[in-house]
Design a protein around this nucleic acid. Structure first.
Lengths: 136, 136
DNA sequence: GCTTGACCTTGACATGATGGGAAGGTGCAC
DNA sequence: GTGCACCTTCCCATCATGTCAAGGTCAAGC
């Protein structure tokens, strides 16, 4: 199987497959006489695993660990759960920060006329760091 | 005022001030005879404006637009509100995606023993794309 | 005057995950 | 034997920020 076919089959672009090989996330693929990379069922499984992990937001470093655990028959599921838990905590923290920014910005927007006039509490906040005087 | 003092005063690192100058986000600062950058009150206001906008998660491109509007006395507040609204929408979309990943992962984690045994629905999902058979 | 240390200058390189493109070789169908 | 789709490697770009290095400048103390 060529890299293009593997890409279609797994949903990982050919570009990224080469990249993952280069950074050592996956083993170097076999080659044809002409130098084309060749992929078998096992390789496709690994690539699909990586794509699903990426879809769940895991970083490359985390995926590296997950792959190692996956291929370790003597693994402890607690290790997997810990990695997942850390990742969930990171994502929740990101959500919290986003939520905070959204809340501030929506509050400012609510007090902005949003018409042709130049007065704007959003710019005022950015310029002075203070909310408008007539604000709740 | 030197770049270091300006950095402390505005909360923007000296490195980033130089960077913002290089990409044209701020005007090139004045220089002393020895080539040191010099900052006045107006420059500090601009840098503080940028820092607050960054704190609210605006991208450099958006800040560029906000700065232009800020310095435009004939601006329409609707333009500012539109930029803010787009940014809020982007952040909400990011939150939605994060929430989805968190939900999936928490669901899988809930069914993982997390002990010394190797069985793990998290790895199983990553490997096969399917949830366990005994799953709700 | 000379040293020292804190600060400034520019420049290059790194992050993380991915995309884009150029220049050239390969495989296959017509 | 030609054309096209695919493959190869290599380089550059993103985005905002950090780190490091080599060298210039300033002010204070001796």
């Amino acid at each position: 199987m060529n890299i293009g076919e593997a890409a279609v089959a797994t949903g990982v672009t050919a570009k990224m497959i080469r990249h993952y090989e280069q950074i050592g996330l996956i083993h170097a693929a076999g080659r044809t006489g002409a130098g084309y990379r060749v992929y078998g069922p096992k390789d496709l499984s690994t690539l699909s695993f990586i794509r699903r992990a990426r879809d769940l937001g895991f970083s490359i470093a985390q995926i590296r660990d997950l792959l190692a655990l996956w291929q370790d028959r003597a693994r402890a599921s607690g290790d997997v759960k810990r990695i997942a838990g850390e990742h969930v905590a990171e994502m929740k923290e990101k959500m919290r920060l986003l939520q905070e920014m959204v809340r501030t910005l929506e509050h400012l927007s609510a007090h902005c006329h949003g018409d042709d006039r130049p007065d704007c509490p959003i710019l005022e906040q950015l310029a002075t760091g203070k909310a408008g005087e007539d604000c709740c």
